[in-house]
């Protein structure tokens, strides 16, 4: 490897020493150095994520508690409506809806913010060396902080209302699988959204109807016949199955798990190619 990114603390004043050498055929080495920097700076990324969330609620009395209040109010009100529509027991539907909505809000915010993550950190990208991989990691951490306000509600609701015992031990795995699927999608959208600024409006439009054709707030078990295709051909359905099933006390079938792992592998491969090829262009495109 011609490029060595030696980054070590030798003296108090000399923070890091690095060697940058650029030329043809070094993209992979540079991409690895980029990722290495990001991994080393994850503690700072967590602090930045927390600070961004806090500054969003500056001068607010309840602060991020609004995230919890908002979720509870919406789910509480909507669950009554859904109970009449779907003729399900209120508690069963509440559990289903709660997990679906909390995860869907996380997915939607992550995807839409991803598409504008580089343009919105344009100042930082143009005034200091900001590795390309650092931006999606901080964004994901911030969204995970928001999710951390919603998941306890889901857990409490599930513990109180689940008709089958909640599969607590599966939740970390299901969350990890979800992130392995969502991170590369968001990171790819980051590249796309920086190059083509139509991405954000297009994505908002698409997600606006995806929420209706996906079983986020309606129960897919009631869909039969030809309409079943809407469910079976919908990738969001499988993502939601992986994320939501443990809270419903359902073991996600093995084919869905295998499909999710395969899809994640493809997405990460695609991301690796795009990252190595276009990483340098981000500072120019923004």
């Amino acid at each position: 490897m011609t490029k060595q990114a030696l980054e070590h603390r030798d003296r108090e004043d000399r923070l890091y020493v690095e060697r940058v050498q650029s030329g043809k055929g070094q993209r992979v080495a540079e991409a690895l150095a980029d990722i290495k920097w990001t991994i080393r700076h994850i503690p700072q990324a967590i602090e930045i994520a927390g600070q961004e969330l806090a500054s969003r609620y500056a001068r607010s009395i309840l602060g991020p508690l609004w995230l919890v209040i908002g979720t509870i109010t919406f789910i509480g009100a909507f669950s009554f409506l859904g109970t009449f529509l779907f003729k399900m027991p209120w508690t069963t539907y509440l559990n289903y809806l709660c997990a679906g909505i909390v995860y869907w809000q996380f997915i939607q915010t992550w995807l839409i913010e991803s598409a504008s993550m580089y343009p919105s950190s344009q100042v930082a990208l143009h005034s200091t060396r900001t590795p390309t991989s650092y931006i999606p990691v901080t964004l994901l951490l911030r969204n995970l902080l928001v999710l951390a306000h919603g998941l306890p509600i889901v857990a409490v609701v599930a513990a109180l209302t689940a008709t089958q015992p909640v599969l607590w031990y599966m939740i970390p795995f299901s969350l990890l699988m979800g992130l392995l699927l969502l991170f590369p999608i968001g990171a790819l959208l980051g590249f796309l959204g920086t190059r083509y600024r139509d991405t954000v409006p297009a994505l908002s439009t698409i997600l606006g109807f995806v929420v209706y054709v996906s079983p986020v707030w309606w129960d897919d078990s009631q869909v039969k016949g030809l309409g079943r295709l809407i469910v079976d051909l919908n990738p969001v359905y499988y993502l939601l199955r992986v994320l939501r099933d443990p809270f419903l006390g359902v073991m996600t079938p093995l084919p869905i798990w295998l499909g999710a792992i395969f899809t994640a592998a493809v997405l990460w491969g695609l991301l690796a190619v795009v990252f190595v090829r276009f990483r340098r262009m981000i500072a120019i495109w923004v």
Partner: peptide, 30 residues
């Protein structure tokens, strides 16, 4: 500063660097 990477040619940098291109970076009014 390592913000743009060269398209052609060779570039080597050794040593810690502080870019003072925008001293207001990261300032939060609140």
């Amino acid at each position: 500063a390592g913000i743009y990477e060269p398209e052609v040619g060779r570039f080597q940098r050794n040593g810690s660097i502080v870019p003072l291109l925008n001293i207001m970076l990261g300032m939060d009014g609140f």
